[in-house]
Simulated scan of single mutants.
Amino acid sequence: MDEGLLKQLNLWHNKSQYAKIINKITEIPEADRDYELVCHLGRALNNQENYNEAIQYFLSVQEQGEHDPLWHFRIGYAYYYLKQYKEAIVAFEQAVVLDPEDSHGNKFLEMSRNAAARAGNETNHIVNVEKGMRSGTDPRLLEIEEKINPFGLVAHNNGSISMILGVGKYKHEVFQTRAEEGFEGNGYDWGSLAAVFLEEKMPHLVDIIRFDPEADTFCIYTDNKEAILSFAIAFKEACEDDSLMKDLFSRAVLD
């Protein structure tokens, strides 16, 4: 791919200008689109919630993507949000095999396994919340997940728990109030908002909650189960109070 085009596509992605990416790539004749271009197109379609179309593009370069963990992650992402959890699990498992250090691949794999378990899908991969207890059958964890939707909870085998959100439409209008300053509503912006909430509303958890956001994903984690469940409930309640959220966001610092 031309380096200038790649730089432009990445700039648009970082600014959440996904429509520009889609328009630019689809202007290029299909025969002239290489593997990298198709993957950029599929990622942009994912971010526009056009998951079925994204999957079709990813499948068109399946052979080239066989050994690319990002290809497996991105098609798994589309399957996950289409609630096709079995397919998502297969994709994320391969992504993790190819890149064991990919924290987001691991998180989405566990989210897919938990979602599959809750949906009653057949799977042997149920994540342990704590010794002797499975997340898929932990009534308290499931109850809290329902309360904090669209945020999710991911229980890890090492004992830590993450609170995660695939950013997009949820409360996007709040971030638009400071768009001129560079805020876009991406994962880093959500992290900045959550940091203000943590410092002002739950300062006793400042040294316990850890942040690990990416452009398309907000994520916090800790090995203190009670702390993150308490934070999750309180933060979701704050997000539903638009005036409070805008007040907190007014003091957020652009990352």
Rank of each mutant, 00 (worst) to 15 (best):
L6S: 13
I126V: 09
A234L: 03
V90P: 01
V154T: 12
N224M: 03
E122Q: 08
N158A: 01
Y79Q: 07
A119P: 01
D138N: 13
S250F: 03
R178K: 15
E181S: 10
K107C: 06
Y221K: 12
E200K: 12
M1S: 08
N47V: 01
D99L: 03
M111N: 02
H40T: 03
A31W: 11
I164E: 05
F197C: 00
Q8M: 12
Q62H: 11
H104F: 15
K169L: 04
I148Q: 06
C239Q: 10
E180S: 13
E87Q: 11
F235A: 02
P69T: 13
L11E: 12
E240S: 03
G4T: 13
E110S: 13
E180A: 12
K83M: 10
L6Q: 09
R178N: 07
E181P: 02
N46G: 04
D2T: 08
G105H: 01
L141Q: 07
P100K: 13
F218W: 12
Q94K: 15
A155S: 15
A252N: 07
G182R: 09
A116L: 00
L198N: 02
N52C: 11
K147W: 04
Y35A: 10
Y85F: 05
A232I: 08
I55Q: 03
I220W: 00
L254K: 15
K169E: 10
V90Y: 07
D34F: 03
E226W: 00
C219I: 09
A115K: 01
T137W: 07
Y85L: 05
M1P: 02
K236R: 14
L153E: 07
E200C: 06
F249D: 00
V167K: 05
A44F: 01
L198W: 04
A232Q: 06
K83Q: 14
E143K: 06
E181K: 14
N158K: 03
G136L: 03
Y188C: 06
A155C: 11
F231A: 00
E145P: 09
V61S: 05
F108D: 04
K20H: 04
A215T: 14
K24A: 13
N128G: 08
L142V: 05
E180D: 14
H104Q: 14
R113V: 07
L153F: 03
P150A: 11
L229N: 01
A232C: 06
D138T: 08
M111I: 00
A234F: 05
G65Q: 09
I228C: 03
F151E: 02
G191E: 07
V97G: 02
N157Y: 14
Y35C: 02
K201S: 07
L205C: 05
I28W: 04
I21N: 04
A195S: 15
R210M: 14
D255K: 10
E240D: 07
G76V: 05
R43Q: 10
V174P: 00
L254D: 06
S192E: 06
L98T: 06
N124A: 14
Q64V: 03
V38H: 05
L153P: 02
E214R: 15
V129N: 12
T26I: 15
